[in-house]
């Protein structure tokens, strides 16, 4: 009975750990959720469709690209393809996270991968790097508040977004790059961090200027990853 109790309390701790980690993510994402809702409605979505998009695609940058192209009356297949191109990086997240959640059940994995957005991925990697277990309970403690907040913000944005008269003055459009920069810097203790960041920065800028968005994401990422994979291998000193 005492084991059952400590098990429950450990699970509660993990749930709380996850939920606390979610707070800065929610604060950082909130302006984008609201902004997405507002822009979606301005681009011809109903409030319901905006919330539905947040609930099913659940990927901020790709949703922004999607409504932008939809508003420009681009062919539907091209809108879908662009959403996929922006989210294609999640293949890499999936491969990487898969190593950390081998002990999860099939259903847990199916749910976990659905919620695998950028901050979810970054926080999960960070937790694993600290040597803490990535349990389903912790993962959901982090994911569920972020997901529910994202839908709520989309809904609020759809209803009241037009009240933001000057998003430029509030820096709304630039909060996302600042946030992503913070995530990049969080990984600076990793092997090859600076060369990888340098290669990805250079390649993504070059691709952005020549081929254009959203391909700079995939091309820039591949440049950094290839560089890391081609570097001389060091003999492994400890468990990964």
């Amino acid at each position: 009975m005492s084991t059952a109790f400590s098990k429950t309390s450990a699970a509660r701790n993990e749930l709380r750990d996850g939920a606390l980690t979610a707070i800065p993510v929610i604060v950082a994402a909130a302006p984008f959720g609201v902004l997405f809702g507002a822009l979606a409605v301005e681009n011809g979505f109903s409030v319901f469709e905006a919330v539905l998009m947040s609930a099913t695609i659940y990927g901020g940058a790709s949703q922004m690209v999607g409504i932008e192209l939809f508003g420009q009356k681009i062919a539907p297949w091209l809108v879908v393809f662009s959403i996929f191109a922006v989210n294609f990086r999640h293949v890499l997240y999936s491969a990487s996270i898969g190593r950390l959640i081998r002990n999860w059940t099939f259903r847990q994995k199916a749910a976990g991968f659905f919620l695998l957005v950028d901050p979810q991925y970054a926080e999960t990697e960070t937790r694993a790097a600290m040597g803490k277990p990535v349990s389903f309970t912790w993962y959901m403690g982090l994911a569920a508040p972020i997901y529910v907040s994202w839908l709520t913000e989309t809904w609020i944005g759809g209803l009241f977004g037009r009240l933001i008269t000057n998003p430029h003055a509030l820096g709304i459009d630039f909060l996302l790059p600042i946030y992503f920069l913070g995530l990049v810097m969080g990984f600076r203790k990793r092997r090859m961090w600076l060369p990888v960041v340098g290669a990805s920065a250079f390649a993504s800028i070059a691709a952005y200027q020549t081929i254009g968005s959203p391909w700079h994401v995939s091309i820039g990422a591949v440049a950094g990853i290839l560089l890391a994979a081609m570097m001389p291998l060091k003999p492994r000193t400890g468990p990964v």
Partner: peptide, 22 residues
Amino acid sequence: PRVEAGLDAVPAAVLTTLVAPA
């Protein structure tokens, strides 16, 4: 090991591409 090294570089590489052009 090279795939492993590549995977380790994924987060910094991908997130950088969302910052650098901006």
